[in-house]
């Protein structure tokens, strides 16, 4: 051993040590994460009830495009994506640049307060939103007291309002999370840049669009990809807040996959193929965003 070690150069030794440190993590990720992913890929080409599976080729992938419930779920996911993600990211950006202001007092307090929702459990916040928007819930009581409504409006009983409630809940839960990324990105922008802009007569709005946004581009890209990913995999809100209702108007793809695997007669092959569609969509959208958002030459 000693001899063989001596024969190696310093660089080789260092890279050996590097691999030695990496191996446990690589093995764990391989066994716990990549192996199941490959198994799921095989599973997605099989069909059958429970564990009596047989090969069927790509029928599962064709089947999902004929499945009205899955198509509805896909549509719902994209509604959330298109409406919620931009609102949330813009809001997070505005909040971050407000809270980054040098002269603002109690910065820490505000930052923490806005980040707090993100520390609540997904299930409990969904349940709380459900009771807030119940027919006799807080929101309805306030609207009745203020004279906007005569009787309670069933927010979760109508397709559009139920979706709006889910979007509101998502914004409440995740804006602070994204804001923290922007705040950390803003720390890398020298204050002198803003000062110089100020001396040159730039308004705060101008310096926001001309300095903050361009310099934060990598962070914005990161949050956009993460939010897209998260929205396409949305599960807890659909299950706990609306239970997919009314009439599947708010059901998400993940929720339907869960139903197919655990609530209905289990069809894991079909469920796995739907999961792979989500993977494909996430990868595709991330690719597009990278192409559009990354302006490095």
């Amino acid at each position: 051993m000693v001899n063989s070690n001596k024969k190696r150069s310093v660089g080789q030794k260092q890279s050996m040590a590097g691999w030695a440190f990496l191996t446990p993590a690589v093995l764990l990720i391989g066994v716990m994460s990549f192996l199941p992913m490959i198994q799921a890929l095989f599973l997605s080409f099989q069909t059958g009830i429970g564990n009596k599976m047989k090969w069927t080729g790509v029928t599962n992938y064709i089947r999902m495009f004929k499945d009205p419930v899955f198509m509805q779920a896909l549509k719902n996911n994209f509604i959330y994506l298109v409406i919620q993600v931009p609102i949330m990211l813009i809001l997070a950006l505005i909040l971050a640049s407000l809270l980054n202001h040098k002269d603002l007092r109690f910065k820490g307090l505000f930052r923490t307060a806005i980040f707090l929702p993100c520390a609540t459990s997904l299930v409990s916040y969904a349940v709380i939103f459900r009771s807030l928007f119940a027919v006799d819930g807080l929101v309805n009581n306030i609207l009745i007291k203020l004279g906007f409504l005569n009787t309670g409006y069933n927010f979760l009983g109508h397709p559009d309002s139920a979706r709006i409630v889910i979007i509101l809940a998502l914004i409440w839960r995740w804006t602070g999370y994204n804001m923290v990324f922007y705040l950390s990105g803003l720390q890398n922008i020298e204050y002198s840049v803003y000062e110089a802009a100020k001396i040159d007569g730039a308004s705060p709005i101008q310096s926001f669009f001309r300095i903050t946004v361009p310099l934060l581009r990598p962070t914005i890209l990161l949050t956009a990809i993460m939010s897209t990913n998260g929205t396409l995999q949305l599960f807890d809100e659909s299950v706990n807040l609306t239970n997919g209702g009314p009439a599947n108007a708010t059901i998400t793809m993940s929720h339907y996959i869960y139903n197919v695997s655990f609530k209905y007669v289990p069809n894991f092959g079909y469920a796995a193929s739907m999961s792979y569609l989500i993977l494909f969509l996430v990868a595709f959208l991330a690719f597009v965003q990278l192409k559009v958002g990354d302006k490095r030459d």
């Binding site: 109690f106 910065k107 307090l109 980040f115 707090l116 520390a119």
Partner: peptide, 16 residues
């Protein structure tokens, strides 16, 4: 400020 923030964070953790 840092102390307040860390206190709040600790509080948030307890709540969650």
């Amino acid at each position: 400020k840092k102390k307040i923030a860390s206190l709040l964070l600790a509080g948030a953790m307890v709540v969650s």
